[in-house]
Design a protein around this nucleic acid. Sequence first.
DNA 1: AGCTGATCATAT
DNA 2: ATATGATCAGCT
Length: 222
Amino acid sequence: MQIPPPQSEQELLDRCRIIAGKTIFELAHPFNQKIPTTLHQAKGWVGTLIEWHLGADSTNKSQPDFSYLGIELKTLPLDADYRPQESTYVCTAPLEPSLEIWRTSRVYKKLAHVLWVPIEASSQIPIPERRIGTPLLWRPCPKTEAILKQDWEELTEILQLGQIAKLSAKQGFYLQIRPKAAHSRILTSTLNEQGEAILTGPKGFYLRTLLTKNILANHYKY
DNA sequence: AGCTGATCATAT
DNA sequence: ATATGATCAGCT
């Protein structure tokens, strides 16, 4: 079973309407997928399943999931109160010298246009019974972008100055930097503040749930 | 209970 | 090792 990429935003939204309200059980069936009992060893499984249903074409590529539309797909795990329960991985953080500015950055490119797909993720709900919410096509408003830009510039400056030792996940209002690797023994080379080669774990940009909670609150008013 | 640091699978 | 897809789990 293969689904071609959507040719318009409307076609993408039409497909979203089809999966909204369905369970993981219903979505796994047409792809003959065995549903994992836990996501412990299948952390990206649900996201991949949604990609298949919506026709994402850039799986395993450094491009938006829907390359023709320039739209990035992100699942949004919801807790029992239907609020985001996990942060959202964006992309790797550059430990090498970079000429990026905000608008040319990988973070901006990823976040410029996102399809958020809310999914029930409370551990109280067995995986097959978890339901898909109504997906939301989103662009950062000017106020939100300004905050992301400031976060990105502060964090990027620290990295570019080689001050990785003073970097922690506590920095950043919406955007933060955390480890991103299979495990903590994986090391990559970078330069410290004195320009000396040192080893450090790979890092990634993540969105705090504060942002995704705000996005949902602003779009699903009652 | 929320957050930070650590970790899991797969493809290239 | 790096990219994709993310969640786990110990500590505060």
